[in-house]
Amino acid sequence: MSIDKATVAHIAALARIRVPEADRERLAGELRKIVAWIEQLDEIDTTGVEPMASVVEMTTPQRPDAVNDGDCRDKVLANAPAASHGFFTVPKVVE
């Protein structure tokens, strides 16, 4: 399926980026071009190839269960655009 305006609107919504109607056609064109270009990977036979998990040939390290962070509310809130009574605040969410 080719990328059209509706695709752009859909992925922009998933990514929570407002894309004005007027920009969607242009973006669709740009993304179409890029996607067509990356589709050259189809030329490569990858049957039986395990997708790369990481370039680091290690397993994930595990840390001990110790409390050595947190307890720094002022630091955590210092950069907040809006905070009140020790909470971050956002426009009301309706569940």
């Binding site: 840390r63 110790a66 409390v67 050595n68 962070d69 947190g70 307890d71 720094c72 509310r73 630091k75 955590v76 809130l77 009574h85 020790g86 909470f87 971050f88």
Partner: peptide, 19 residues
């Protein structure tokens, strides 16, 4: 992260920059 997990603490007092 290394922040504590206890229940009922003051808001955002058990939060590390990772969390």
């Amino acid at each position: 992260s290394g922040a504590a997990t206890g229940f009922g603490a003051e808001p955002n007092s058990q939060v590390s920059p990772v969390d």
